[in-house]
Design a protein around this nucleic acid. Structure first.
Lengths: 226, 226
DNA sequence: CTCGAACGAGAGCACCGCTCTCGTCGGAGT
DNA sequence: ACTCCGACGAGAGCGGTGCTCTCGTTCGAG
């Protein structure tokens, strides 16, 4: 059956609230995001917002999921499946960095200190995995096209989970635990590099952020074998 | 002249406040650290604390500096100057990870999202540099002892600052921008790895955190040339 | 010994997350 | 077509927060 008028206005108001919350987040950051200010912006009284989100943390969880989807979409859009693996890797890294620099508070919410007591993992996992899936597909395609040399072939399920192995291109002669470790390392190092830049730990060390980033990501590509 | 009784009790009370704040931080995290709760714990009224710290953010800044000093001391204690560079690097990495795992909220305060509007960089810089100085000394010693092969020698001051070059062992035939980039990358990747583990981004991927960490840090050591 | 500075306590302001109650109104079932 | 339950928005209120101001007290330098 079609949505009733009440359902439509509810969906509309939910969107207005999340939009206002996203604007607040972009302006003042997650720590200073106030549910009451969001309510004021949409012309509601604060208690009315609780009809739509049970708590401030649930509102933040919504923003987290949307953020993961946003950066995931940016990564997917930047990936050119026909390009060489090294170019694909670099393009995705650049896209994630560009997204982070244009959404610093959202990036901090996703990859900085966890803000609420507990994040709801179940809901955020699929959205959070999108960037990793893009990187994993690059790795898998590189192996399938024979761009990677065969590896030793050791496989220890107690080290890296089966799920991660599946994301990283599955079973292939080019993959062993060393290659998979390097891929996970490159993945986390991408975010380590962006976090250091965004959170100011490179201040006084790295002068040209753009060139340093490209060089660092190229080193990681070479480490993987691209 | 010797400190007056008033000065001594002031120093003592300042210490009591920071100690209570550190306990609060360890328990509930920086976001939930309340100046009023700290005041209650030391038996003061909240307004009295403002005689010692002008604002909650200044209290947090004090904790940030202490945290940098603490992890810096742990890194320095773990470094064995007579060991091979690779062993020294791995030992320092393990020490930083161990500190982070035993002080998760403090680690998040130091290397997660910046909490206050602005962190006071001038005060925190020397304490924050201690871990980097340890890693830089390992690199410098390795070069001085001839453990590193000579490098191409390119040096672009617009890429990496002179300060960072000094920390990374100064000018040496074994160093060029490629080696220095790899060292900075390894440095930030150490924190990227720890952050991913602590903030839950490895959940579902890495099964054995200890072994993965050692392998990943070994890959970084090899990347530098250790 | 004096007097100003430092100090602790208390009240108060504006804001926060969240709960509860109370009219109102939409819409599904009869 | 009517009824009635549930969703809804508004408002008051609770306990908490950071921070400011005032007011006596007390310490210690001159």
């Amino acid at each position: 059956m079609p949505p009733t008028a009440r359902e439509r206005v509810r969906a509309e108001l939910t969107r207005e609230i999340t939009d206002a919350a996203r604007r607040q987040l972009a302006e003042v950051g997650a720590a200073a995001l106030s549910l009451r200010a969001v309510a004021r912006e949409v012309g509601m009284v604060s208690s009315a917002v609780y009809r739509y989100f049970p708590s401030r943390d649930d509102l933040l969880t919504r923003l987290i999921i949307d953020g993961y989807d946003d950066v995931g979409a940016a990564a997917e859009a930047a990936d050119a499946p026909d390009a060489p693996p090294r170019d694909r890797w670099l393009a995705v890294c650049r896209a994630v960095r560009a997204w982070a620099r244009s959404h610093p508070h959202e990036y901090a919410l996703l990859y900085g200190s966890p803000v609420p007591g507990y994040r709801a993992p179940q809901d955020t996992v699929p959205a959070a995995a999108r960037v990793a899936l893009v990187l994993g597909r690059i790795l898998g395609d590189a192996a399938a096209s024979g761009a990677l040399p065969p590896a030793g072939g050791a496989r220890d399920p107690a080290l890296i989970s089966d799920d991660a192995v599946a994301v990283l291109g599955g079973d292939h002669p080019a993959f062993d635990d060393v290659v998979r470790t390097r891929a996970l390392l490159a993945w986390s190092s991408l975010y380590g590099t962006i976090s250091f830049e965004l959170f100011g730990h490179f201040v006084g060390s790295v002068q040209d952020g753009d060139r340093y980033f490209d060089r660092a990501m190229s080193e990681l590509a070479a480490l993987i074998g691209f």
